[in-house]
């Protein structure tokens, strides 16, 4: 059996030195369910590494128990999940339920192809931010920084 281990090494070497490394914080990124569109999340992993974060990317086909267990073991400061094929409501509900049952209180954000009304429903469910297509790298980094700051406040 092939198990996709967390990838710690950078997917590529950052081209630019990050302007500031304020946090040295660790972000857990994962795809959930059977969706396998990973362009967005691989790009976000690179953007966040360039912005000075430590990123643990869990790969595809994760379910809530594994994401939460890894977040606890890796002492992650936030969790980010990406969707393209319409699983966002089911999987985020499962993830938040699992976080509650494990007592894990860190910000969770998601992104991808998500209709506007679902994005609102996700926020109402407790998702800290929903990042929709068409963001520049600087926007992504700023929004992650923002949700971590709110989480710490």
């Amino acid at each position: 059996m092939t198990i996709h281990e967390p990838i710690h090494e950078p997917i590529h070497e950052p081209i630019h030195e990050p302007i500031h490394r304020p946090l040295h914080r660790r972000i857990l990124l994962a795809k959930m369910g059977l969706d396998c569109h990973d362009t967005g999340i691989v790009t976000v992993a690179s953007v966040l590494r360039d912005a000075g974060y430590e990123v643990v990317y869990l790969g595809l086909h994760n379910f809530a128990d594994r994401v939460v267990k890894t977040a606890i073991e890796e002492d992650a400061d936030a969790i980010g999940i990406s969707f393209l094929s319409g699983q966002h409501m089911t999987q985020m509900r499962r993830l938040i339920e699992q976080m509650q049952s494990e007592g894990l209180r860190i910000p969770v954000f998601c992104g991808g192809v998500i209709p506007d009304d679902d994005a609102e429903a996700l926020k109402a469910m407790g998702v800290a931010d929903v990042m929709l297509p068409g963001l520049l790298s600087s926007d992504v980094a700023a929004r992650v920084e923002g949700l971590l700051a709110r989480g710490a406040a």
């Binding site: 092939t2 996709h4 396998c36 569109h37 990973d38 362009t39 790969g59 595809l60 086909h61």
Partner: peptide, 12 residues
Amino acid sequence: QMSGGPLQTVTQ
């Protein structure tokens, strides 16, 4: 077929 990218889609 499984969105082209990662080998994981065809080996898992």
